[in-house]
Every structure is written in C-alpha cells, then in structure tokens.
Simulated assay, not measured.
Amino acid sequence: IVGCTCTDNLPILPVEELQTKYYIRFAVADRSGVLAAMAGVFAKHGVSVRSVVQRGNSEHETVNLSYVTHTAKEASVRAVLAEIAGLEDVLRAEPSVIRVEG
C-alpha cells in the first residue's frame, strides 16, 4: 500500500549537508599536469572519485574530463569546484554538475 507522505513532519536538510553521488564534466586545457592537479583537489576535500573519463582531441587544445564520485557532501563538492576554478589556465568553460541518486 502506498500512503501519502505529504503530512509527514520531516526536517529540511541544508543543501550543504546533502550527501549523494555526483557527475561532473569539466572542459579543461589539454596539457600535462591538469588531471593530476584536479585529482589532488578532489583528494584534498575528501571527495572520492569512482570513475574519470577523458574525451576530446588535442587539435582543439581542450578536452572533457567527466567524473563520477562516490557519495560526497555537497559542501565538499562545492569546495572542489571553487578550487578547480581557481587553478591557473585549467578551465575552458563552466563545469556541468548533476546530482546522482542510487
């Protein structure tokens, strides 16, 4: 039986405390050291990477790095995004971020 949960008194969790998996795609400079620098940022903020795929072609000097994380806090992922945005000559566009359930 499926019951209505609309009357349940559930606490509202601050978004920074949300814990889920994430898909994040970065358009980055195609040069040595970028992947290593980004991996260090993920590790520094305690965000474990489940997989990473690099796609692109060096003729355009930009590649896409697509990450899927293990379960992580929203605040930690935001810290990763902010620090990567501050890396010198790395990002070529705003990253795409999708929360993944399950």
Rank of each mutant, 00 (worst) to 15 (best):
R50H: 04
V100R: 00
C6F: 01
G3Y: 12
V68L: 11
S66W: 04
R92P: 02
V34C: 00
V15I: 15
N57W: 08
Y22H: 06
I84F: 01
L91H: 12
E16K: 07
K21Q: 13
Y67W: 00
S96T: 04
Y67A: 03
A85I: 14
A29Q: 05
E88G: 01
E88S: 03
R50L: 11
A82M: 07
S58Y: 00
T71W: 13
V80F: 02
E59K: 08
S96C: 09
V52E: 13
H70L: 12
P95K: 15
H45E: 06
E101C: 03
I24R: 14
A79N: 05
L65Y: 06
D89W: 01
A43S: 04
E88C: 05
V52S: 14
T7R: 05
V63P: 11
H60A: 11
V100S: 13
V34A: 05
V53E: 07
E17N: 04
I84Y: 02
S48W: 11
V80L: 07
A37K: 14
L87Y: 10
R55V: 00
K21V: 02
K21S: 12
V28N: 07
N64Q: 12
K44T: 13
C6G: 02
E74N: 13
N64G: 09
A27M: 06
V77P: 05
H45M: 06
V2W: 10
A27V: 00
V52A: 11
R92W: 05
G40K: 02
L18Q: 00
H45C: 01
E74D: 14
H45W: 07
A82F: 07
C6L: 03
V77W: 09
G46H: 10
T7W: 02
A75E: 10
G33M: 14
E74R: 03
Q54A: 04
S48I: 13
L87A: 12
D8W: 10
V100G: 12
